[in-house]
């Protein structure tokens, strides 16, 4: 119970940090490990991930749409940023080849030509859901993956008092592609793996804007004439790379250790940037459980 409470507090702290303005298709590393079957018999993934997108003094070359009433406002804007906190899981999958010995083996290195089709879903606080099919194929020590994410979200802005309000909102259906690959080294004697991955992905940073006062009533001294400003929807491509730390079980000691199934965990750090001198960056941390 205490552990569950601590976990929830930990996750809520992450959620509180994120403000749900970034949309991108999630990482393919957990699914790659399912396709590899490094933890034989594992079939479920539960992930928590935080993503941050930011751009100071940027010159966005991708699609940028201003949602402000003041159409000129985004031209003067030199900073866009946002973050998100997601819970991801796989719904259905079809993997190849089938794993014959799900109880594990002492020298099991997984399916070197394993692959899979996965249908996954995620929820992001407050009101965003996504569905993303994915394909992964291992070719010896390397794997290739592609996924397309369809997200529908309602994004909230801020009112005159700088408090989040449902009056300023924008509902959007967005799509984002993620193609890439990676490699991983498995230390089977310990049940540890270290991996690198990278690719090209589409990122959206969405902000419906905030309502601010644009004038002052000089008779009363109070601020008047609220107008919606600083809304934007940035859509751009970024190159990214990441490093993965994996722990897993696959030795035939399920019975002896009183464990029902083989399991694994993954910690991934990702960073991304545009290929030119543009300082748009992306940073992510994710924590996954393979069950």
């Amino acid at each position: 119970m205490r552990k569950i409470c601590l976990l929830i507090v930990f996750l809520c702290a992450f959620a509180a940090w994120a403000d749900d303005y970034v949309v991108l298709s999630p990482s393919f590393v957990p699914q790659a490990l399912l396709a590899r079957q490094i933890a034989p018999g594992s079939s479920r993934i539960f992930s928590f991930s935080t993503s941050i997108g930011s751009c100071d003094y940027c010159n966005i070359t991708g699609n940028i749409v201003s949602t402000s009433e003041d159409l000129q406002s985004h031209y003067s804007r030199d900073k866009v940023d946002g973050s998100s906190f997601r819970f991801e899981m796989n719904l259905v999958d079809f993997k190849w080849p089938r794993t014959k010995n799900t109880a594990g083996a002492e020298h099991w290195a997984g399916h070197r030509l394993g692959g899979g089709l996965f249908l996954n879903a995620y929820y992001s606080a407050l009101l965003k859901v996504g569905l993303y099919p994915m394909v992964v194929q291992w070719l010896g020590p390397l794997y290739l993956a592609a996924t397309y994410d369809l997200s529908y979200g309602c994004y909230f802005g801020y009112d005159e008092d700088n408090a989040m309000t449902t009056d300023v909102h924008e509902s959007l259906l967005t799509g984002s592609l993620n193609v890439g690959g990676g490699t991983m080294v498995f230390m089977n004697n310990h049940g540890l793996g270290v991996g690198l991955h990278g690719g090209l992905r589409q990122m959206h940073i969405i902000n419906p804007g905030s309502r601010v006062y644009t004038g002052t009533d000089y008779r009363t001294g109070s601020r008047i004439d609220p107008a919606l400003q600083d809304g934007y929807h940035v859509e751009d491509w970024i190159y990214y790379y990441g490093i993965d730390f994996v722990g897993y079980t696959n030795i035939p000691l399920l019975k002896e250790s009183n464990t029902k199934n083989h399991q694994g965990y993954i910690f991934s750090f990702e960073m991304g940037t545009r290929p030119d001198d543009n300082p748009l960056i992306y940073w992510a941390f994710s924590m996954s459980l393979l069950l």
Partner: peptide, 18 residues
């Protein structure tokens, strides 16, 4: 003793159990 890896933990659990 290595305690980070899944198989390290599993061996340790099996040993304690035995």
């Amino acid at each position: 003793t290595a305690t980070l890896g899944g198989n390290d933990v599993m061996r340790s659990m099996a040993k304690k159990n035995a």
